[in-house]
Amino acid sequence: MGETALGASLAAVLGDPALAFPLALSLRIALATLALHATLGIALGWALARRGWWGRGLVDLLVMLPMVFPPIVLGFALLMALGRRGLGGWLEAHLGFGFIFTEAGVWLASVIVGLPLIVKPVEAAIAALPRHLAEAARTLGHGEAVIFARVILPNIAGAVGAGLLMASARSLGEVGVTLMLGGNILGRTNTISLEIYNAVTVGEFRRALVLSGLLGIVSIAVLVVLRRRAGAPL
């Protein structure tokens, strides 16, 4: 009887037409975030692994902020910076574009919170590479772009994969920054994570439980993959 009731609850929640938009939005945001993490994240990791350039400390600090700042505080700071009284006013006036309470804001929040989890593993992996690999390629006349693509990147593929998995899982579960930048507007900026928040606020705990279970399964899957890649027992 209990299994029947559980199955009915799952069917009722997952079959709700209102869930189609947050699922689609979360998927779009996840794919767009993954694309930027795979480019900007790797580029920043490579840059931070190269010591001694001016401004490196500031860039490293900005990358790490989402790891130490409370998400709601970081979200509020971005809201002030990107709102109409900040950079957002200029963007809207000159480009007709803004981040606040838009899908772009949800995407920005997703990128920011996951960025440290791809940048730092890539930085550590590059810093740990033997110097003679790149030096040998330079003696053969290869430029830095070729060295990165053919020498460095293949040797840090494991760190890149692990970082992208962790960053994607973290971004998918983001609430605080997304709530501030996206505004949690139904049918416009409400992601699956925000749907859990919405369900709890109105007392729909069964709905919150099912959606939390879905995100929990994704997180566990990421953990299993990471442990298998590391050769650790499950």
Rank of each mutant, 00 (worst) to 15 (best):
G2Y: 06
T4L: 15
A5C: 01
G7Y: 09
A8N: 10
A12C: 01
A12W: 07
P22K: 06
L23G: 05
L25C: 07
I29P: 00
I29K: 04
L34A: 15
H37F: 11
A38V: 06
L40A: 15
A43E: 08
L44P: 01
A49K: 02
G55T: 03
G57V: 00
L58E: 08
V59M: 09
L61R: 11
L61V: 10
L62P: 04
L62V: 12
M64W: 04
P66H: 10
G75N: 07
L78V: 07
M80G: 01
R84G: 04
G89S: 08
W90L: 14
L95A: 15
F97Q: 07
I100S: 04
G105T: 10
G105F: 05
A109W: 09
V119T: 03
A125L: 13
E135F: 03
A137V: 05
T139P: 00
I147Q: 12
I147S: 09
V151C: 04
L153G: 00
N155E: 12
N155I: 04
G158D: 13
G158P: 01
A159N: 08
G161H: 08
L164V: 05
L165S: 02
S168T: 14
S171P: 00
T178M: 09
M180Y: 08
G183K: 03
I185P: 07
Y197P: 02
N198R: 13
R206M: 04
S212T: 14
R227E: 15
G231Y: 09
L234K: 01
